[in-house]
Computed example of a mutant assay.
Amino acid sequence: MINKFMHFISRRNIYSKLTLCVNQQREILGMEPLPSGKGFYEIARSVFLHIMPTTLAFEFPRQSLEPQLHFVGTLLPLLDDESTAEFPPWWQEVTHSSRAVLHITQGTYATNSANLIRPTINALRNETDLPLVVTSLDADSAFPDTSPLPENVL
């Protein structure tokens, strides 16, 4: 229900403005505006193939999915025969540990590490498990406060 509401709000407040911009550009190019009921949201997806780099398990329940929508899982870089993946120095500790490994990630929508990552680290700082924090930022940017990371965090 929340997803449906968020889509309604997005279509009304965000996509409608984008559709207006698209139609303005179409007019400049001598094109007709998008058909009634079709907007930026609808034209941003291919009618032939739409690849989702995730799994269906991460999606909200839906009544129907377009037949051109295909979930393909994670997109990984291609490595040729001469390439080798470089792992961080602590990788062996993770792959050969008898302790549980906790994967903590902030996500893509709410990205402020102070809202999830830092509180999770603080809550688990005395655990014997090994929290593993993954972020696309360097530690100084992701964790701007001056408190050091606990030893059980990589």
Score class of each variant (00 low, 15 high):
residue 38 K to R: 03
residue 38 K to M: 03
residue 39 G to Y: 03
residue 39 G to Q: 02
residue 39 G to F: 03
residue 40 F to R: 01
residue 41 Y to M: 09
residue 41 Y to V: 03
residue 42 E to M: 01
residue 43 I to M: 05
residue 43 I to R: 00
residue 44 A to H: 05
residue 44 A to D: 02
residue 45 R to K: 07
residue 45 R to I: 07
residue 46 S to R: 00
residue 46 S to T: 00
residue 47 V to R: 15
residue 50 H to Q: 12
residue 51 I to L: 14
residue 52 M to V: 06
residue 52 M to K: 04
residue 53 P to D: 12
residue 54 T to D: 09
residue 55 T to Y: 15
residue 57 A to S: 03
residue 58 F to R: 04
residue 59 E to I: 00
residue 60 F to A: 05
residue 60 F to V: 14
residue 61 P to C: 01
residue 62 R to D: 08
residue 62 R to P: 00
residue 62 R to N: 09
residue 63 Q to E: 11
residue 63 Q to F: 12
residue 64 S to K: 11
residue 64 S to I: 11
residue 64 S to W: 15
residue 65 L to E: 14
residue 67 P to K: 14
residue 67 P to F: 04
residue 67 P to E: 12
residue 68 Q to T: 03
residue 71 F to Y: 13
residue 72 V to H: 02
residue 72 V to Y: 10
residue 73 G to M: 05
residue 74 T to E: 12
residue 74 T to N: 10
residue 75 L to F: 11
residue 75 L to M: 13
residue 76 L to V: 13
residue 76 L to F: 02
residue 76 L to S: 07
residue 76 L to M: 10
residue 76 L to N: 11
residue 76 L to K: 12
residue 79 L to V: 09
residue 79 L to S: 07
residue 80 D to L: 07
residue 80 D to P: 01
residue 80 D to K: 09
residue 80 D to H: 11
residue 82 E to M: 04
residue 83 S to L: 14
residue 84 T to G: 03
residue 85 A to P: 01
residue 86 E to R: 11
residue 87 F to E: 13
residue 88 P to C: 08
residue 89 P to V: 08
residue 90 W to Y: 05
residue 91 W to H: 07
residue 91 W to A: 05
residue 91 W to P: 00
residue 93 E to Q: 04
residue 93 E to K: 14
residue 94 V to H: 10
residue 94 V to E: 08
residue 95 T to H: 01
residue 95 T to F: 13
residue 96 H to M: 15
residue 96 H to C: 05
residue 96 H to G: 10
residue 97 S to H: 03
residue 97 S to V: 01
residue 98 S to V: 11
residue 98 S to K: 13
residue 99 R to S: 11
residue 99 R to E: 13
residue 100 A to C: 09
residue 100 A to D: 14
residue 101 V to A: 11
residue 102 L to Y: 04
residue 103 H to F: 15
residue 105 T to D: 04
residue 106 Q to F: 00
residue 106 Q to L: 09
residue 107 G to R: 04
residue 107 G to F: 05
residue 108 T to W: 06
residue 110 A to W: 08
residue 112 N to L: 07
residue 113 S to C: 10
residue 114 A to Y: 08
residue 116 L to K: 02
residue 116 L to G: 01
residue 117 I to W: 04
residue 117 I to R: 00
residue 117 I to H: 04
residue 117 I to V: 13
residue 119 P to M: 05
residue 119 P to W: 08
residue 119 P to R: 02
residue 120 T to E: 06
residue 121 I to Y: 03
residue 121 I to Q: 01
residue 122 N to W: 14
residue 122 N to G: 04
